[in-house]
């Protein structure tokens, strides 16, 4: 009869932010790279915060191809991990109360990753959004696009295949 009232906004936000934090904060390489995440609902934007360490060609200067590859791979894995956790958390199957990097469910493993370099990476912040194109029981396929000044002008894109964790 009576419809359940929607949860208060701060409860919803805190639960989702805590889930993202558990995914991201436990990974040393993400902080080494200076990568952070913005969340709007279930949409994530990865941010590669510029530092001089990321340079690969000091003469231009340009971002290192390896730094760009790392950024895209981090963006893809976190998107997939968040996708996996989202349903569990929103359906209440998984509580965020004690969710820490140590208590997270097992995450997918990268099988392969192909990076397409479209333009020189400039010495400034970069952004990336990933899309899960296939979410199967065993395999997932994720595409990721990265840009700097202009969302329409990608400087790199990538596709990766991932092995999904065994489900109990």
């Amino acid at each position: 009869m009576a419809r359940t009232r929607p949860e208060p906004v701060h409860i919803v936000k805190e639960r989702r932010d805590r889930t993202l934090a558990a995914l991201v904060q436990g990974v040393p390489y993400i902080s080494t790279m200076g990568i952070s995440f913005d969340r709007r609902g279930d949409e994530l934007t990865a941010v590669l915060n510029y530092s001089d360490m990321l340079i690969g060609n000091p003469l231009l200067p340009a971002l290192h191809g390896g730094a760009t590859a790392s950024f895209l791979e981090v963006a893809a894995i976190i998107e997939l991990g968040f996708h996996i956790l989202w349903d569990e958390i929103e359906n209440g199957r998984l509580s965020t109360e004690n969710l820490t990097p140590e208590t997270l469910p097992r995450m997918p493993k990268t099988i392969d990753f192909t990076v397409d370099y479209l333009r020189t990476g400039l010495p400034r912040d970069a952004y990336a959004r990933a899309r899960v194109n296939r979410f199967g029981r065993r395999y997932a396929s994720v595409h990721v696009e990265a840009w700097q000044d202009n969302r329409q002008k990608l400087f790199a894109q990538a596709t990766g295949h991932f092995l999904m964790p065994e489900r109990p």
């Binding site: 990974v27 290192h64 191809g65 390896g66 590859a69 790392s70 791979e73």
Partner: peptide, 13 residues
């Protein structure tokens, strides 16, 4: 285990 991205960076270099 080391992040795949770090291995990619080594391979690229």
């Amino acid at each position: 285990v080391i992040h795949g991205g770090a291995v990619s960076a080594l391979m690229d270099t």
